[in-house]
Simulated assay, not measured.
Amino acid sequence: MGLRERKKQATRRALQEAAARLTLERGLEHVTVEEIAAEADVSTRTFFNYFATKEEAVVGDVPTAPDEETRRTFVEGGPSGVFVDDLITVLTDTLLSSDDLAAHRAAMRARKRLMEHEPQLVPGMLSRFHNLELELGRAIAERTDAPDGDERPHLVAATAMAVMRHTLKCLNFREGEGAADVRAVLRDAFRHIGRAYAPSDD
């Protein structure tokens, strides 16, 4: 990733953190776009280069669709060639932008508090999960060369999203945890689902 892109990501993250912080302190109705921009030390015009509304900034970027490189690698059968492991990689990329789980722990806790105190934000968060599920279903369909009208890729995507939501609830984000720990939780969850729905020997 180039310097320009890293700066853009840093600005976007600063705006999200400022929006969350001010909203938790004052309530969404009492926070303006101008105040969020000032808190992040950017102009209002810069704010609108990243977000259309203050609500969008408060909700933030989790979960997000995988970037084009991650998606292409998955569709082409990678990175490992094992479907579940590759799906876990895609899901991890939607949860974590880096291995800095300390930052993610703080962001997750803040987001949970925001949803509790500002329930009007919940539909926006649910919409992000829905959009990610649709994108994931399309990627799975491409990877498996599913015919038009085949609902199986979308069923797998819906199950994967349920696993991800469960993971978000279960992760403790303790000190010292890393992306490998997140992948382990996801892998265990898929294993449990497989056992629960496996054909009976009877």
Rank of each mutant, 00 (worst) to 15 (best):
M1F: 07
R6M: 15
L15N: 03
Q16S: 15
Q16E: 15
A20G: 12
E25M: 06
G27R: 04
H30N: 14
V31N: 01
I36L: 08
A40D: 00
V42M: 04
R45S: 15
T46I: 07
F47L: 13
N49F: 02
F51G: 13
T53M: 04
E55K: 03
V58C: 06
V59S: 10
P63K: 09
P63L: 08
T64R: 15
P66I: 11
D67N: 14
D67A: 07
T73W: 07
F74V: 11
E76Q: 14
G78A: 13
P79Y: 08
P79L: 15
F83E: 06
D86C: 05
I88R: 14
I88S: 03
V90I: 13
T92A: 02
D93V: 00
T94D: 13
L95E: 14
L96Y: 13
L101H: 01
A106N: 00
A110R: 13
A110H: 13
K112I: 05
L114I: 01
E116P: 09
P119T: 04
L121A: 00
P123K: 14
G124C: 10
G124H: 10
M125H: 12
R128T: 02
L132Q: 14
L134Y: 13
A139W: 00
I140A: 09
A146E: 03
P153G: 07
V156C: 11
V156W: 05
M164E: 09
M164R: 10
T167R: 11
L168V: 01
C170P: 06
C170N: 10
N172F: 06
F173I: 02
G176Y: 04
V182D: 08
V182I: 09
R183Y: 00
L186M: 04
L186F: 05
L186K: 05
R195M: 06
A196F: 09
S200F: 09
D201H: 10
D202I: 13
